[in-house]
C-alpha cells in the first residue's frame, strides 16, 4: 500500500481497516495529527486528503492507495516558514492547551483554499465540526479572518 504524505511516498504495512490517523501516528511517527474521539466528532485528526479536509480517523488505509495526504507537519511546505493560517494562529495567540489546533488549522486552511473571503456564516458552519474544549472559539474565528486578510493581501 503506497500513500504520499507531505510529498514523500510511503509503503505502509497496516491492515486495510486501520484508520489513516493511526498509520500517521504509529507507523509514520507523525504526531501532529491528534486522536480525540475516533468517530469524526472533534476534528482533531483533520488532514488534507487529495486536497480536501478529511477526518483521518474515518479513512481506512485500504481505501487510500495512491492518495496524497498533507498533515500539519507538511502544511507550510519546506523550511521554517509558516502557512498564513499558522501565522494568524500565532499572532492571535489562539492556543490554550493546543491539542485541537492542528485539526483547526488544517480545517481553516482548507476553508480558505476553497473560499478566500468566507462569510462569518461560512466560517461558523465549516469550523463547527472542530471541537475546542478549552473554548478558544472566539480566537479561532478571529484568526481565520486575519488569515483571510493575509492571503488576500
Amino acid at each position: 500500500m503506497k500513500i504520499t504524505v507531505n510529498g514523500t511516498e510511503h509503503d505502509v504495512t497496516a491492515e486495510a481497516d486501520t484508520p489513516l490517523l493511526w498509520v500517521l501516528r504509529d507507523e509514520l511517527g507523525l504526531m501532529g495529527t491528534k486522536y480525540g474521539c475516533g468517530i469524526a466528532q472533534c476534528g482533531a485528526c483533520t488532514v488534507h486528503l487529495d486536497g480536501f479536509a478529511a477526518r483521518a480517523c474515518q479513512q481506512p488505509i485500504g481505501s487510500l492507495e495512491g492518495a496524497d495526504v498533507v498533515t500539519i507537519e507538511g502544511l507550510a511546505g519546506d523550511g521554517d516558514t509558516l502557512h498564513p493560517v499558522q501565522q494568524a494562529w500565532v499572532e492571535t495567540q489562539v492556543a490554550q492547551c493546543g491539542y485541537c489546533q492542528s485539526g483547526q488549522i488544517m480545517q481553516a486552511a482548507s476553508l480558505l483554499a476553497d473560499d478566500p473571503a468566507p462569510s462569518d456564516a461560512t466560517i461558523d458552519a465549516t469550523m463547527s465540526g472542530n471541537l475546542c474544549r478549552c473554548g478558544t472559539n472566539v480566537r479561532i474565528r478571529q484568526a481565520i479572518r486575519l488569515a483571510a486578510d493575509k492571503m488576500g493581501a
Partner: peptide, 10 residues
C-alpha cells in the same frame, strides 16, 4: 506565549 509557535505547528 513560549508554547504558541509549537502549538500552531503540531
Amino acid at each position: 506565549r513560549l508554547d504558541i509557535l509549537d502549538k500552531s505547528t503540531g
